[in-house]
Design a binder for these strands. Structure first.
Length: 695
DNA sequence: ACTAATGTCCTTTTT
DNA sequence: GGACATTAGT
């Protein structure tokens, strides 16, 4: 008797009665349907780019609820909060559309699903159950910059800052530390594989990390890595562990290819048998190994859970076939663990265009012009996106867009929240929230004239010994500090005890900080405006603790999200790093700076693995496009008064290039655009005339 | 002890 | 070209 593929058997004879006509399943293809109705055994969905992965996941959530699972017992782990919100929105719409379904909903009307990033969920759980493993209730969270600052403080305290040969920088130290934690690798392995130049410092680094961990504990702070390790510790705790495991009937994980070892261990601990566990991912889109992520998690899933099923989604609903062909050509040389043959039903469509630009200015001008052309043709700005490898790649384009009055939002790169003056303001609140938070304290104290690192450290020690800000009322401070000192102590004492709205608290801190800002920076006006924005942002949060945690875990990703009032109907062009474009799609996509050295980045060509990740990054960029795709690179780069020649990305192999139409963009010229032949003729005649002088 | 100034390294992606 | 570390000066 011929055997049928597992999925088919299960669909017919599974524990769910015939549901071909079920409204949740109506719009799904057979593979998606199999994934949605799969029972509570572990499931891996291998979903290629644009194959309706979000749709499948949202439908599966809705399906669970229709099955009678309590939404509050569903855990949905995503890569960004934005992704979680989108997924929940879709699931909720589906559930509401079901006749006779009433949703157990909170006052906000939304499903009470546990949705968010690993880090956000960890925070929620640790706030609620952290005391089981001895975590203080008022812990504060360090973002990457804070963690680096603390690493720096500890490094200085240990005397490692002034060694004969130069000790690794704070950022490097943190990167090594974080790699050990997230990838679960020993210091020796990490040093050997990724930081060979730091190997002579192995012993000092070990000492530094010990002190760093101890300092974090004393300060009552958690860094990003701690959120994960403490979640895992909670699960391994004999009393808390079973309780946490008992909270969830279904666990769904998006973007599984970009999770790291530590996150996989959390899942193992959360669901040892894989009961109710669904993970979705695409090994061809793994682009976060620099953060410790590994595709091994996907590859090992079926081995770790022997009764796991694997379902592949291969029909692409996003892109036209010509775009898909180009993207597939880029990936043709890559090793693929789960071979997928993506195909599209949309066979017609314009060939993607490879645009060779004279220089960077030409590239910016060309993209701006093309964007307007598409808008004229009826494609809104919001349906168009410009993607690039590094944040600074868009600077020239931003200027050009500003000049032409084209509105845009930029995602990725330096965040609003990372700017020095914003961090300053928030440090006041964080210190009030947790007086032991040394990084926040040193930051606040350092703002005052007359206080440098040495005195700030002593003041923090005094504060730690006494436990509250009254430790600072009697202390003697330098002449230069004396004037402001009482006001600072009063401010902190007030903030510490108050329960007034967090926006009011921010405003008090701002009032104190304003004069200091004017002294410290030569452009205080725009910075002061930023601070007012932060006060506005504060209105959206229930309390100080929530504000601080949310801003540390999921800061507003677009500067413009904050800078302009939320007018939903605004039309704007999207500018984004490729990393931040993950999971999104647009009608028109422009990939700029597709020159070798930018894609792949020169910073990431050290090993074959790194280069492969850059290839996948390029693939992710191309597969964001639905209907039009432009890949641009400048021929000349201006470096000082010298210009260097660039080559197109090495990923644009002859086979790949054949999938593109070709276009040369020259300097923009009023009137007729000069074509290549005309121009070379003009230059030939100049050359001939010049030569007469010496012939 | 703190601030200002000069010299040297690194230059990416993000929870 | 900007961050960072060390050095000299107040």
């Amino acid at each position: 008797m011929p055997s049928l593929p597992d999925e088919d058997v299960r669909e017919v004879s599974g524990n769910v009665p015939s549901h071909k006509d079920h409204p949740i399943l109506a719009s799904l293809n057979p593979q998606q349907r199999a994934a949605v109705v799969h029972d509570d055994r572990p499931l891996l969905i291998v979903a290629g780019a644009g194959t309706g992965k979000t749709k499948a996941l949202a439908h599966r959530v809705a399906w669970h609820i229709a099955e009678g699972i309590d939404p509050a017992r569903i855990l949905l782990l995503t890569f960004t909060r934005r992704a979680a919100a989108e997924m929940l929105r879709r699931a909720e719409a589906l559930v509401r559309s079901l006749p006779g379904t009433k949703i157990a909903s909170g006052s906000s009307g939304s499903l009470r699903i546990w949705g968010g990033t690993f880090h956000a969920i960890a925070t929620r759980l640790l706030r609620r159950y952290g005391q089981a493993i001895g975590l203080p209730a008022d812990f504060t969270i360090h973002d990457q910059t804070d963690s680096q600052d603390l690493m720096h403080a500890v490094r200085t305290a240990l005397g490692l800052a002034k060694t004969e040969k130069r000790f690794p920088q704070k950022a490097t130290c943190l990167a090594i530390y974080s790699r050990c934690i997230n990838a679960r690798e020993t210091l020796d392995d990490v040093l050997a594989d990724r930081f060979p130049w730091c190997r002579p410092w192995r012993l000092e680094l070990a000492r530094l990390f010990d002190a760093y961990v101890e300092r974090k504990e004393k300060s009552g702070v958690l860094d990003y890595d701690d959120l994960l390790t403490h979640w895992l510790a909670l699960l391994e705790d004999p009393t808390a562990g079973p309780h946490i495991r008992g909270l969830f009937d279904r666990i769904l994980v998006d973007e599984y290819q970009d999770t790291n070892r530590l996150q996989a261990e959390i899942l193992y601990a959360l669901s040892p048998e894989g009961k109710g566990l669904t993970v979705v991912g695409d090994d061809a889109q793994a682009i976060y190994s620099f953060r410790g992520a590994t595709v091994e998690n996907i590859l090992e899933f079926p081995h770790h859970y022997p009764n796991a099923s694997v379902i592949a989604l291969e029909q692409n609903y996003r892109s036209t076939q010509p775009i898909l062909r180009a993207a597939n050509a880029i990936m043709a040389d890559a090793r693929r663990a789960y071979p997928k043959k993506l195909w599209s039903g949309r066979t017609s469509g314009q060939k993607p265009v490879l645009v060779t630009c004279e220089d960077e200015d030409t590239q910016a001008a060309h993209v701006a012009r093309q964007v307007l052309e598409h808008r004229e043709a009826g494609i809104a700005l919001r349906q168009q996106a410009v993607l690039f490898r590094a944040s600074h790649h868009s600077i020239l384009l931003e200027a050009e867009l500003q000049r032409r009055d084209i509105p845009f939002h930029k995602y990725g790169g330096l965040k609003f929240i990372e700017m020095a003056h914003v961090k300053d303001l928030l440090a006041f609140l964080r210190l009030a929230e947790n007086p032991r938070d040394m990084v926040a304290g040193l930051r606040v104290l350092g703002l005052l004239p007359g206080i440098g690192p040495a005195r700030a450290n002593r003041l923090m020690q005094a504060l730690e010994d006494q436990g509250d800000f009254s430790a600072w009322t009697a202390i003697k401070v330098p002449q230069a500090t004396a004037e402001l000192w009482p006001a600072l102590v009063a401010l902190l004492q007030h903030l510490r005890g108050t329960s007034e709205p967090v926006a009011t608290q921010l405003d008090r801190a701002r009032a104190f900080y304003q004069p200091l800002l004017e002294i410290a920076y030569d452009n205080p006006v725009p910075r002061a405006r930023d601070l007012e924005q932060i006060v506005q942002v504060g209105m959206q949060y229930a309390d100080r603790r929530t504000l601080l945690a949310e801003l540390a875990l999921d800061p507003p990703s677009s500067t413009q999200d904050l800078a302009s009032p939320p007018r939903r109907d605004d039309d704007y062009l999207v500018l984004s790093t490729i990393h931040s474009a993950k999971g999104l799609e647009w009608d028109v996509v422009y990939v700029i700076h597709a020159a070798d050295g930018d894609i792949p980045s020169d910073m990431a060509t050290g090993s074959a693995e790194e280069i492969e990740e850059e290839r996948r990054l390029f693939y992710v960029a191309l597969t964001r496009a639905k209907r039009w795709l432009y890949v641009c690179y400048p021929l000349r780069y201006q470096a000082g008064h010298r210009s260097t020649l660039a080559k197109p990305s090495r990923f644009l192999s002859p086979t790949a290039v054949a999938c593109f139409e070709h276009l040369s963009a020259a300097c923009e010229w009023p009137g007729a655009a000069p074509n290549a032949a005309e121009e070379s003729q003009a230059r030939r005649s100049i050359r001939e005339q010049t030569r007469r002088y010496w012939q």
